[in-house]
Design a protein around this nucleic acid. Structure first.
Length: 880
DNA sequence: CGGATCGAC
DNA sequence: CTATGTCGATCCG
């Protein structure tokens, strides 16, 4: 979509349009100048709750700026010089990695929704219109824009700016259809093109251009199709306009001169429009009614735009450049109905950027613009000049992004959309303040959301409630549960507690809200889904529906209370929550303290360098290539994950089912776990006692069930202790098994940390939805089984693990998965760290010009790499 | 992990 | 009267 939303800044072309509004002599169509626009907006806005909130937000931004300026004051010349050196090293690397070999196109439909509405209702053609409602506009046509009417503006204010404004309601079905028509064209030029919403798309036409070189003219010939268009074309082609084709700016200007901006496109015609002289049929028609496009990128894009217009009667603007960021900015250059190209040369790129306001850059919004402006940075060249300072003031992700921008680097390939990360629904309404209504609304939202989730077969573990009060203040409250939710009831069970907390928090006043939203995130990844299917469902069908459970070392017993208290009354929810929180914070896990050094080392400054090195080391080592099955303990030749999983599945099928049935036959850990559990049995949430009796509670111990919320925590915990010999029990339900494992693991880690801490390093790893813990033996360790406490003869970790395995009631469900060396959250570096950590940061390989859309931060990319590099013998206890 | 914020369409 | 809805990313605590 056009940059209509970039309101109120110097870059908009109101002035231009105003100067050129020659064609329209109707009264009231002249538009307004910027001053008037601002005045009217201010009058309509001033004093409103909305405005007050805007002021507040503005102040917050100002505070951020002040904070930044204070930080800037403290920077010494020394530091700055050092940073300069570091950054410039990186600049050299980035420069070397510059890739100009791709031809990326950005297509942007002009004022899309408005254009569609005008096309379908000729009465609107000459009028200023906007699409949306009295409370919010999605877009406006170019008439309306001259009055300051823009997207993201409420309709009632637009009406004040432009009393004649016609507001057309949204009709997404229609836009979707048109969008589909356009996409059908685009896909011919790049089957992997990337749509961005209904009206924009990126294409990589590099391959098309190569093929096209060999195409005969006929393949590049297109016909005008409609009667009306043909007339227009005749008119245009016989006018002098199409003769001045070479001066594209003039052409585009004349396009803009046309009030509606939807004239047929004179820019499409080359002065030497080739004709099909020797075509047998309809020769005379061909002369006037067809056009052949050349083989250059410009020609291709003209062809695309021509075809779009012929097919939909709508115009598009386009940008051509060596990467997506530049292409996007190019498409903005000559809109509406124009195109622009940056030649694939370094200098052309830099020239383009030279005086470009940073606000034009995708990703730089109002706030970033203001912050940078405070540093005297307005254009891209200034952005480059201040690179050293920026590296000291902003996060690594930010300043590296700034650097990419100022060098004109961007993604040179179009990445496939990753999997969806969240799904949400929200609604704005006139004030609702009764709790009853709020709950029923909440349920409604959950119902809608559940429906959508089920369409895509998704289940998520985190539910987020969003509230906006009548003062426009937004709050979000999230809760992560241990088993995924997807149904209305499941989601509502979580959301209603969150809502309850908020209602209580303002009691006895009513919660006065104007918006409520519910979001589900934390979906199972594809791999997890596969795992769940293959490894568990296949051989543990006896588990109750949803009886899966996983250990979450980082989670505390809080989970037991909050997550299982869905049906509990409000008051007690609160108490439990508070109690659990304290429990959580005070009951620090001994393992965490043991592993802390290592863990934090990895996380702290300069981690990027270390991790990158580690990754490459691992990649180069042979360790990557061997893999031992955790079930049969045989070395596997393949390190293809799929194959390995298949193998493990087979092994598991053969052995583990049996083992699982024999859980805790000789359970000598019971003694230790009993005292711990008793507290829970009595629901006696006494932190001190728990702390004393089991320091593990906060960490390796965590479980959930999807049992009916009716069953109390007490019941759940009592299940953990087998009250009968296992033989007599029901065919184990998975929850029971896992609880046992849970206990065992507590014991395991506890002893390690208490007695044999030297021999093990425990690394805790959390990657979004996925937690695990694994143990490594240091070389020359004496291995003592943490269960039977006996020293083991072997030094082989594999054998040792086997023993522990047996001790731990044999088997259970273990999976040796790829080792994940790095915690996912590695990126949080303090300012001070950032400055210090810079010392070697720049030596890392530039993670290349990956698509920004991939959304991976540098460190995430690293851990992704690490993930694919399967190495050392580690065991990950991994339960679902 | 949870919460707030930014930015895009 | 009347200031959206949905998503991903990032930063901070």
């Amino acid at each position: 979509m056009d940059d209509m939303k970039k309101v109120g800044n110097s870059s908009c072309n109101d002035g231009l349009l105003l100067r050129m509004g020659l064609n329209d002599n109707k009264a009231g169509m002249q538009g307004l100048d910027k001053e008037k626009i601002n005045k009217i907006i201010m009058e309509a806005t001033k004093g409103s709750r909305f405005y007050e909130n805007e002021l507040k937000k503005d102040q917050q931004v100002n505070q951020r700026i002040e904070k930044m300026m204070r930080l800037k004051e403290k920077i010494t010349t020394q530091q700055l010089l050092k940073a300069q050196l570091q950054v410039d090293k990186l600049v050299i690397e980035l420069e070397q990695s510059r890739n100009l070999s791709n031809t990326i196109v950005h297509i942007d439909m002009d004022a899309f929704y408005a254009a569609v509405e005008m096309r379908d209702n000729p009465e609107l053609k000459e009028k200023p219109i906007a699409v949306g409602s009295m409370s919010m506009l999605s877009t406006s046509n170019y008439h309306a824009r001259r009055f300051g009417v823009r997207a993201a503006m409420p309709g009632f204010i637009a009406k004040k700016l432009c009393p004649h404004l016609t507001i057309v309601p949204l009709n997404f079905e229609k836009y979707g259809k048109v969008s589909k028509e356009v996409r059908e064209i685009l896909t011919e030029y790049d089957p992997n093109f990337m749509p961005m919403g209904l009206d924009e798309a990126y294409l990589n036409i590099t391959e098309h251009l190569e093929e096209r070189l060999n195409w005969p003219e006929d393949k590049r010939r297109f016909f005008f199709n409609t009667e009306s268009t043909r007339e227009k074309v005749y008119r245009l082609t016989s006018s002098p306009i199409h003769l001045c084709i070479k001066e594209k700016d003039d052409i585009n200007m004349s396009a803009k001169c046309n009030e509606d901006g939807y004239s047929s496109s004179p820019v499409l015609f080359e002065e030497n429009t080739p004709l099909m002289d020797n075509h047998p049929e309809q020769r005379d028609q061909s002369v006037e009614n067809s056009i052949v496009f050349g083989t250059s990128a410009e020609e291709v894009v003209k062809e695309i735009r021509f075809r779009i217009e012929q097919k939909t009667q709508l115009t598009a603007s386009a940008g051509i450049a060596p990467n997506t960021m530049l292409a996007k900015m190019c498409s903005d250059r000559n809109k509406p109905n124009g195109q622009y190209r940056i030649a694939p040369e370094r200098q052309a790129v830099l020239d383009f950027l030279k005086d470009l306001p940073i606000r034009k850059v995708p990703g730089i919004g109002k706030v970033t613009e203001k912050m940078l402006k405070a540093l005297g940075i307005v254009t891209c060249s200034e952005l480059y000049q201040q690179r050293a300072l920026l590296s000291l003031l902003f996060s690594e992700a930010s300043w590296r992004n700034f650097l990419d921008i100022s060098l004109g680097l961007g993604s040179t390939h179009l990445e496939k959309d990753g999997e969806r990360k969240s799904m949400s629904t929200e609604r704005t309404f006139s004030e609702i303040n009764s709790a009853e209504d709020q709950y029923s609304l909440c349920r409604e939202l959950c119902r809608d959301l559940a429906q959508e989730l089920q369409k895509e077969g998704l289940k998520g573990k985190t539910v987020t409630l969003k509230l906006k009060n009548v003062n426009f203040e937004v709050k979000t409250r999230a809760s992560t549960v241990l088993s995924s939710v997807s149904t209305e009831d499941e989601i509502f069970a979580v959301a209603k507690d969150l809502l309850g907390t908020e209602i209580d928090s303002v009691a006895p006043h009513p919660l006065r809200i104007r918006l409520m939203g519910v979001r589900v995130s934390g979906f199972l990844s594809e791999e997890e889904k596969k795992y769940q299917q293959k490894s568990i469902k296949s051989f543990l069908k006896s588990g109750r529906e949803n009886g899966f459970l996983r250990l979450q070392p980082g989670k505390s017993n809080q989970q037991y209370f909050t997550k299982n208290s869905e049906a509990s009354p409000r008051g007690s929810f609160f108490d439990k929550k508070r109690a659990a929180r304290q429990l959580n914070s005070e009951n620090l896990c001994p393992n965490e303290t043991v592993g802390e050094q290592l863990f934090h080392d990895q996380k702290s400054s300069a981690n990027f360098v270390k991790e990158t090195k580690k990754v490459t080391d691992l990649q180069n080592s042979n360790l990557c290539k061997t893999f031992t099955c955790p079930v049969c303990f045989e070395e596997q030749s393949s390190n293809n994950l799929e194959e390995l999983n298949r193998h493990i599945d087979e092994c598991l099928n053969g052995t583990v089912v049996k083992d699982a049935m024999e859980i805790s036959k000789n359970d000598n850990s019971r003694e230790n776990t009993l005292s711990f559990l008793l507290h829970f049995e009595n629901e006696n949430v006494d932190e001190c006692q728990i702390n004393k009796t089991d320091q593990l509670a906060g960490t390796d111990q965590s479980a959930s069930t999807s049992d009916d919320s009716a069953s109390s925590s007490t019941e759940k915990f009592t299940q953990i202790i087998p009250d009968k010999p296992h033989r007599e029990r029901q065919p184990s339900n998975l929850s029971d098994i896992a609880r046992n494992v849970c206990m065992k693991q507590c014991l395991f880690t506890k002893r390690i940390s208490q007695d044999k801490g030297d021999h093990f390093e425990k690394t805790e790893h959390t990657e979004k939805t996925h937690s695990s813990c694994f143990f490594e033996a240091k070389e020359d360790s004496i291995l003592v089984c943490p269960v039977c406490n006996l020293q083991q003869k072997t030094t082989s970790l594999v054998s040792f693990n086997r023993h522990v395995d047996v001790c731990l009631n044999k088997g259970l469900i273990q999976e040796l998965t790829e080792k994940k060396d790095f915690p996912a959250k590695t990126s949080n570096t303090e300012n001070s760290n950032r400055v210090g950590g810079l010392s070697r940061g720049q030596q890392c390989a530039n993670p290349s010009q990956g698509t920004k859309r991939s959304g991976l931060t540098t460190s995430q990319s690293v851990s992704k790499k690490a993930k694919s590099c399967n190495s050392k013998h580690t065991i990950e206890m991994f339960f679902k």
